[in-house]
Nucleic acid binder design. Structure first.
Lengths: 353, 353
DNA sequence: TAAGGTATCCAAAGCGCTTTGGAAACAGAA
DNA sequence: TTCTGTTTCCAAAGCGCTTTGGATACCTTA
């Protein structure tokens, strides 16, 4: 079928054409007749020709690759939400002929890695994950002139950059008010680490919800940690042993929420009946039924929902757009949906005493 | 500090040396004096010089990149275990100066993508995820001469290739026998999709365990689906409503196992006391406490445990080794640990009637 | 002193592609 | 017929690196 390696040179020789013409025919330039173009394309896939990516990116200066630098947390936890975001972004890249480059590095090496990616021209742009309060990566990338999109936001009032975020504040405020309207007053917040910007905004929303209904936020109901299952479990155990256990909890992710459910189950406390739970649901694929065709019945968790996979898709689109026509920074703020499931209900009589 | 773009040419001009010498100094060749080498290295990082990756891979023919092709299932589920595997592999790549390239593509495009990666010389090797019974990717990659390591195994008796796998059969056999020795007889298997090779081996192990103790496997206790949380929930609901509900369940992943717990909790059935559960635990980071320093107390799930993150690390090492000295295929079969937690116990009297 | 080794360095030829600046061929217009 | 404009193609110069095949200087040794 095909020989060793067909490159532009051998292909053009076989066709009796110059490399220029073949290259132009394949890349859709107008200065080649339709007839030869067809001939070239036909030969190209008969000989299974694919341009060497390193050669073309050397020649063009474009890598047709975007980078994702994922910091390795101290305890080597990798954010579980990451997989779905990556899946979404990856779909977009694939359909646009881009590749995804991932570097897993310790926090301390991040800056070096971004510098490397930029000066090596390894990637045409990057997606920034998990922005901090005033994230140093943002000015860094700006100074490196590397296009980027932030998934989330950082607190730079004066600084224009592209981001895609969920309105965490309003989502948590609405959820809190929803619980209060059900009669709940002692509402716990099981939040993520507040070094993450989104966690801070979520607490703000929660507090705004409480104070809007005349309830004073209390420190003993607020928790902040890595969003893993055992965290939800342990916090709930402690809360339920405490003097005035909450009648509702607001949880920053489905993962700790499952821990909450487990802790309650051990104590015979029924979610939705005895204690209400609202979780932030990133629509992680492994927590949802895989046959998406089936008509949805009432979901288990009452949740504030926003698909992280769609976010990945959209963030990737925004980045590609920015790469292809530089300069235009654009941002999007998504509202999350409040979806009523089985884990919320009016404050129970038992708990109210 | 530094000008526009420093490349080999400008750097060597500033140093008053040839490109050859500078290149050799930086790449540790012996034919350059230690003195000039130091001078070159010092200048290189003063000017923030980094060789263009496309140029060097064009010149050397090596991409210093490994590929992971992740197939997009029909229902767009991305395997949750994937994130931790990738994290492990990514660490290894980073410390060895390799990059990780990920392509998320529909199943139907996989072959084309592998061909592309190989003929473009985009990557030096690939990791194959989730091998099927007789996975066509294996002969394909062999014919493409692209180094690869399979995470898992495929059923090619005659065919030598590198793989890294957990001994799923023995793990599930041991777990089954453990349950039988606790007095259980009606043991359900909540398995993954049997198109995946590992799921088949797990069922074999389960059946071997049963028959070794004189129990006939029964179809009604065996389930096979995508390993998501709702799957465990629904199957358990059905099982518990059935005429002869199992007194123990063996679950192929922690994710459906959480669904099992949820279904039991709803019915007031206590795991470990009324019904025993053993789950296969890939040590997913988001299900474990993030402070790994803390002395472990008894884990919640009794589990057959094997860290998928370590597997990722090891698979990456094996691949890099194979890339750097081609030809040597090597394989490893890991035994999983049976870790006793709180979800197993002797068959309860209530259930035995 | 000359011959032979060795330690340093360099010019130039690729790697496989894109793209600039024509050239050739052919058409229609003067 | 000659001139201008189009269409279609090409030769050659990069892109930034590695690497081959010397060259040059500096020591040894006979």
């Amino acid at each position: 079928m095909s020989d060793e390696s067909v490159n532009l040179k051998t292909l053009s020789e076989r066709l009796g054409l110059s490399q220029t013409t073949v290259s132009r025919a394949l890349n859709g330039f107008p200065e080649v007749s339709e007839q030869t173009r067809r001939r070239v394309i036909e030969a190209a896939d008969r000989f299974n020709y694919r341009p060497s990516s390193s050669a073309s990116s050397l020649a063009t200066g474009k890598a047709r690759t975007v980078g994702h630098v994922v910091p390795l947390a101290e305890h080597h936890m990798i954010n579980p939400h990451f997989a779905d975001f990556i899946a979404g972004a990856g779909e977009t890249y694939s359909t646009h002929g881009y590749d995804m480059l991932i570097r897993v590095v310790p926090r301390a090496d991040e800056e070096r890695v971004y510098r490397e990616l930029a000066t090596q021209k390894r990637v045409d742009g990057v997606v920034v994950h998990g922005p901090l309060g005033r994230d140093p990566r943002i000015p860094l990338l700006q100074s490196l002139q590397l296009p980027f999109v932030v998934h989330g936001r950082s607190d730079y009032a004066d600084n224009e950059y592209s981001w895609l975020d969920v309105n965490n504040r309003s989502a948590f405020r609405r959820a809190t008010e929803f619980l209060i309207d059900l009669g709940h007053e002692r509402i716990a917040l099981i939040n993520g680490l507040e070094t993450m910007n989104f966690a801070k905004r979520r607490r703000k929303g929660y507090e705004a919800g409480l104070t809007s209904r005349g309830i004073e936020p209390e420190q003993r109901y607020i928790f902040s940690q890595d969003m893993v299952e055992p965290y939800g479990y342990e916090v709930t155990c402690r809360l339920m042993e405490s003097a005035a256990p909450p009648t509702a909890v607001l949880v920053s992710s489905i993962l700790p929420a499952m821990g909450v459910v487990r802790a309650l189950a051990e104590r015979g406390i029924r979610p939705g009946t005895d204690v209400s739970i609202i979780a932030f649901d990133d629509c992680l694929s492994f927590l949802h039924a895989s046959d998406s065709e089936r008509p949805k019945d009432v979901p288990y968790f009452t949740a504030i929902r926003s698909s992280i996979r769609l976010a990945g898709r959209r963030a990737a689109q925004m980045l590609l757009q920015q790469i292809e026509q530089p300069g235009a920074t654009r941002s999007e703020l998504w509202e999350a949906d409040l979806v009523i499931g089985q884990t919320t209900g009016p404050k129970s009589q038992a708990a109210s005493q």
